[in-house]
């Protein structure tokens, strides 16, 4: 555990954003943001609504292409033009709206974009049995509660949908898992379970980037926190060296923060 942590500090960051900027029309959503996430580390991204947290996450997930700046994965600059490219790099995301196809069942959603198939002539024929088995494995490995793999996702409760989205991300993320408010729809017990899950991912050597409004959660499971304010990086703190009061102040702007001094 401690060995893991020290080796994490030494190598190149799993994910590094360098002076990343993104605007939509005239609105600047991100400006000169630089962050790093290392192996085995849970890093929080906090900020008010509209601070640019989800935009940042979407840039890394390949949903948006940054206008300026660069993204590095394991020290190598990458351009992520499409979500499929992020996935190929071992980056998975749980988006805030969960991004599930309501008409499809749990297994189909978990395997969307990486179906197990056998080639028969020109056709990639779905191997549903193999996919169900693998889905069961993921679900039991991470202790995710989903009642039926064959239920259509639109019939699941908010918490169960969240379970599907999280299961999909943790089942395939090999380097970095990003989660945008993963416990927003969950009850107390489910939240605790997801927090355990996040810590276990870091324990396995993955990097985790967590967007959260819940500072109790941030202080419970994260190692560091980046504070965004109106699209800019307001501050970076080690959780061990800060307090909730300070972080709240940085979010609201009561404390100025030091911006760009990471």
């Amino acid at each position: 555990m401690t060995a893991e942590a020290t080796s994490a500090e030494s190598g190149p960051a799993v994910l590094a954003l360098v002076e990343v900027g993104k605007h939509f029309g005239g609105v600047s959503a991100l400006q000169g943001v630089s962050i790093e996430v290392h192996r085995g580390e849970v890093v929080a991204l906090v900020g008010d609504n509209g601070a640019g947290k989800s935009t940042l996450l979407r840039c890394v997930a390949g949903a948006h292409l940054p206008d300026v700046g660069s993204i590095e994965v394991d020290g190598r600059p990458v351009v992520i033009r499409h979500p499929s490219e992020a996935r190929a790099l071992g980056i998975e995301a749980v988006h805030q709206d969960l991004a599930l196809a309501d008409h499809l069942d749990v297994v189909a959603n978990m395997f969307l974009g990486r179906e197990i198939s056998r080639r028969i002539g020109p056709f990639g024929v779905l191997d549903n049995r193999a996919m169900r088995a693998k889905a069961n494995e993921i679900i039991s490995e991470f202790g995710i509660k989903i009642p039926s793999l064959r239920a259509r996702v639109r019939h699941l409760s908010g918490g169960q949908r969240q379970g599907v989205a999280i299961g999909r991300a943790v089942g395939w993320g090999t380097k970095l898992v990003m989660m945008d408010e993963p416990t927003a729809a969950l009850g107390v017990r489910e939240t605790a379970r997801v927090q355990e899950l996040i810590k276990s991912l870091a324990g396995k050597g993955l990097a985790v980037l967590l967007v959260s409004h819940n500072l109790d959660q941030v202080f419970e499971i994260c190692d560091r926190v980046y504070v965004l304010r109106r699209g800019r990086l307001a501050a970076e703190r080690k959780i061990a060296n800060t307090t909730k009061e300070e972080v709240v102040g940085l979010i609201t702007g009561a404390f100025a923060g030091e911006a760009a001094t990471t």
Binding site: A63, S84, D97, A101, L112
Partner: peptide
Amino acid sequence: RHVYAMGSNPVAARLAGL
């Protein structure tokens, strides 16, 4: 399956790499 996924939720389909 991708035909159904895109019709069900094009944004989700894209984010899933389709």
